[in-house]
Design a binder for these strands. Structure first.
Length: 457
RNA sequence: GGCUCGGUGGCAGAGUGGUGAUGCAGCGGAUUGCAAAUCCGUAUACAGCGGUUCGAUUCCGCUCCGAGCCUCCA
């Protein structure tokens, strides 16, 4: 078996991936809090870990990929109040939309999609364990995790308790023994959602669900835990503290975190008004364009999202589809994904830019291939596309689909026929006039010895 | 202030102790009635200053600049 290398946040090193059980690889990725539409920044981890999921599935017989839905959270409570809706109406609506949006990015559906509200007993059980073990304490209706009770607290994010105190700029609740103690369980007011617990009616703190659901659905320890790098602290640090103290063991073997998406060089934020939702972008761009754009930089590097990025992603995909379209009559040879030139780069810490370079090479090889080599070259390009989760559309549809409100295919075909006749009569003025009109309408013509094809620009 | 990560050609973006990826844009060709697409060729880079080395963009140190996290956040 070929080796997969991953950069582990815990060690800071690029390590060879060795699963706990090669027959059952487990990966958990932090999913959405469902209170609004997912934006393009949310899409990056989804696509990145979809890539990792795909690679793992090629390498191992069984992979269990879980991505949670956080459907109880103060942000959801607030959204429900603002909209005058029930909390589960809000969470259901946005969970559904989230699934639709990320499916459009050619991401495979996770094997498990645990919901926080379905796992409250497991969270209460976890909290009780932590109290019993001396790692947590009830105070003022809350239950808090005592960070000083864990010797290695801070190891994941590379910080020490004393350092964090120096930087503390938030008012510390007086019921906390240590400023770094975090909430496991908190009380709910009468108008807030809550569940009965040994500490009264309340709801879980943010970090609790992932620890409890990983244990409940995947086991004491998992191979990979992923998410955006902003989650390293406090979320994953605290998850790790909960799980290690309650269940022992190492909890997670490989922590993998992706960098942010910036918008035109600035951080994406509501106050800057530069948040772009996946849904909005999908109205202008095919999901493959967004996916390709998100994969164009290495996952651990910041990605600057811009018009230029989208345009270049679109034109790159157009190039690949053009190569396929020009060989539409060629039956592709079957080539395993693991045998394609784009796959090796993915084994090296998901080096998608290098993988894309291989894709370009495969595309060029197909364009240059002599007849005897076309089947193999086409199969190679398709396998590379599959490795990256792109090129899943019929090329003809890619170029001529959509644009329902513009010129219809029939009208375009008639104009092309008229131009063909004009050219046959050497009436190039008329032929060029037709072509110019079509260009003005967003239709580009390409002549070849076999005839004229068209595409929407 | 503490911690972490970066600064590569016009732009995007990999990688490497010694033959300077890849894409877009540019330039020159082939092809085309002219284009488009495709193919061929080609210029431009490794923030700065030291150090290690036969040799550094790649390792080490310092400086400058930028980004992120420090208990809402992909």
């Amino acid at each position: 078996m070929r080796e997969l290398k991953l950069t582990n946040t815990l060690t800071g090193e690029r390590e060879i991936f060795q699963p706990i059980d090669p027959e059952r690889v487990t990966m958990y990725v932090c999913g959405p809090t469902v209170y609004n539409l997912a934006h393009i920044g949310n899409a990056r981890p989804v696509v990145v870990f979809d890539m990792l999921n795909r690679v793992l599935r090629e390498l191992y017989p069984s992979v269990i990929y879980a991505r949670n839905i956080t459907d109880i959270d103060d942000k959801i409570i607030n959204a429900a109040r603002e909209r005058g809706q029930a909390i589960d109406a809000v969470s259901t609506e946005f969970a559904d939309k989230y699934r639709e949006d990320v499916a459009a990015l050619n991401t495979l559906t996770p094997d498990l999609e645990p919901h926080a509200t379905d796992n409250i007993p497991a969270m209460i059980d976890l909290t009780e364990r932590l109290i019993k073990a001396g790692n947590a304490y009830p105070a003022d209706g809350h239950v808090l995790f005592a960070v000083e009770s864990m010797p290695g607290y801070g190891a994941l994010s590379g910080r020490k308790l004393e350092d964090m105190l120096a930087g503390a700029r938030v008012e510390v609740a007086d019921y906390k023994r240590h400023a770094g103690d975090f909430v496991l369980w908190k009380p709910s007011a009468a108008d807030e959602p809550g569940w009965d617990s040994p500490w009264g009616r309340g709801r879980p703190g943010w970090h609790l669900e992932c620890s409890a659901m990983i244990r409940a659905h995947l086991g004491d320890a998992i191979d990979i835990h992923g998410g955006g790098r902003d989650l390293i602290f406090p979320h994953h640090e605290n998850e790790r503290a909960q799980s290690c103290c309650a269940y022992g063991g190492d909890f997670v073997r490989y922590w993998v975190h992706n960098a942010y998406v910036d918008m035109d060089g600035e951080k994406m934020s509501k106050s800057l008004g530069n948040v772009r939702t996946i849904r909005d972008l999908l109205s202008s761009y095919h999901g493959e364009v967004l996916r390709f754009a998100l994969l164009s930089a290495h996952y651990r590097s910041p990605l600057n999202f811009s018009q230029e990025l989208l345009d270049s992603a679109k034109s790159a995909l157009d190039g690949f589809y053009a190569a396929l379209r020009n060989n539409q009559d060629v039956e592709p040879a079957h080539i395993n994904v693991t045998d394609c030139v784009a796959f090796d780069a993915l084994l090296d810490d998901l080096n998608t830019p290098e993988s894309i370079a291989a894709l370009h090479a495969a595309s060029k090889a197909l364009n240059k291939a002599i007849d005897a080599d076309r089947a193999k070259a086409k199969g190679m390009l398709l396998a590379c596309g599959t490795a990256l989760g792109i090129l899943q559309v019929d090329p003809e549809v890619w170029f001529t689909g959509g644009g329902d409100n513009d010129l219809s295919a029939d009208v375009i075909d008639k104009l092309i026929a008229e131009r063909r006749d004009a050219k046959a009569n050497r009436d190039f003025a008329r032929a060029d006039q037709i072509r110019d009109e079509l260009i003005a309408a967003g239709i580009v013509l390409e002549d070849s010895p076999e005839g004229t094809i068209w595409r929407r620009a």
